[in-house]
């Protein structure tokens, strides 16, 4: 009784086999993993000016930081996209980076740089992570917990919040004494290549915990791509699951931001690359793809900047620039769903 025309299935014979292989998500992921390995080896072992051992020590720390940041940002952004049913907003775009600067500024403002410096790095990190997690869980549940709102409204909220935080930050910074201000500005620059070992370990621990919490929810996340009503219909306790996921996202983003500073558009780039690359909507594939693509961006970017262009130190600026353009492109092209 149904007479719709059957879909055409006639791929070109040549290289059809190869293409079929390439369509498999595991194959794609393996290729990506190999690429990351190659980049790591190149980054660690080439262009060593002095002692190899010394270079390895410094560089492996940097690689570890990149792994942690790529994991935190990749996983949190993809999960955030799934629960908020969009592919443009990320936690950072919702005003996260501005909030990070605000917290640091408030700490210096209230206590002065002497105690800011006296604060050991650990205490500072703990305070920043705790405040950011609390703030973002509140913000996300307020914004996304209730009924669905339009993407444009969300973007607007993010921009307004960001502007507000920036204004308060600036106001406080004007009232700081120059010495305090200098200490503060120093701490606000995102730095990937010189992480604090202890904090790196702690962040890695938190991020690993977050990943461990996401793994049992992978299939639930797949169902959440259908949207809240369908997910509820399929027996998911939507409110509870989304709260858990928001908390995980908040912890991951907060931990990595407190470690290396804010990188606004990084998550947006890797998540969207992952959707395009992974070859499946399933989170078993998109999440690791996002993480590995993040590694490729960070390592590849650092390599090109350091070794090819001989700049050094401005990777986050490059990511922000290209990410910003990409963001505009997405918003303008999609008509923002």
């Amino acid at each position: 009784m149904l007479t719709d025309p059957a879909p055409q299935t006639a791929p070109r014979r040549t290289s059809a086999h190869l293409r079929e292989r390439w369509a498999q998500p595991p194959v794609r992921l393996a290729v990506l993993g190999a690429a990351v390995l190659v980049l790591v080896v190149v980054y660690l072992f080439t262009d060593v000016p002095g002692s190899l051992l010394f270079a390895l020590e410094i560089r492996s720390l940097a690689v570890a930081a990149m792994v942690v940041v790529a994991t935190a940002v990749g996983v949190s952004t993809v999960v955030f996209h799934t629960i908020t049913q969009n592919r443009i907003l990320t936690p950072s775009i919702m005003g996260f980076d501005a909030f990070y600067r605000l917290i640091s500024t408030v700490i210096v403002f209230l206590s002065g740089s002497a105690s800011f410096l006296a604060f050991d790095a650990l205490t500072l990190w703990l305070v920043q992570v705790a405040v950011m997690v609390a703030f973002s869980v509140l913000l996300f549940t307020w914004l996304f917990g209730g009924k669905r709102r339009s993407l444009h409204l969300m973007l607007l909220v993010g921009i307004v919040l960001g502007t507000f935080f920036r204004a308060v930050t600036e106001w406080m910074q004007r009232m700081l004494d120059p010495l305090d201000f200098q200490v503060l500005s120093d701490s606000l620059f995102a730095s990937l290549t010189r992480p604090d070992e202890l904090l790196l370990g702690l962040t890695a621990g938190l991020v690993a915990l977050g990943c461990a919490a996401v793994v049992p929810l992978l299939r639930t996340l797949d169902v959440l791509t259908l949207g809240a009503p369908a997910a509820v219909g399929l027996g998911i306790e939507h409110r509870r699951v989304v709260m858990v996921l928001f908390t995980i996202v908040s912890v991951m983003v907060a931990a990595s931001t407190a470690l290396v500073g804010p990188i606004l558009f990084f998550g947006l780039i890797v998540a969207n690359l992952a959707y395009w690359y992974a070859g499946s909507f399933r989170h078993v594939w998109t999440l690791p793809s996002a993480v590995l693509l993040g590694m490729v961006c960070l390592l590849g970017g650092q390599l090109v900047l350091d070794r090819v262009l001989d700049f050094g130190g401005t990777l986050s600026a490059v990511i922000e620039f290209s990410g910003g353009l990409f963001f505009l492109y997405l918003v303008l092209r999609k008509g923002a769903r």
Binding site: R87, T225, P229, V232, G235, Y275
Partner: peptide
């Protein structure tokens, strides 16, 4: 529990917009 109800009651809503690319089989 929602999961228990989902075994006796299925609901299809009016607007079913899915952002991700799913196949019919998925």
């Amino acid at each position: 529990p929602s999961a228990q109800l989902a075994k006796v009651l299925a609901v299809l809503r009016q607007d079913n917009q899915v952002a991700a690319r799913l196949t019919v089989q998925d």
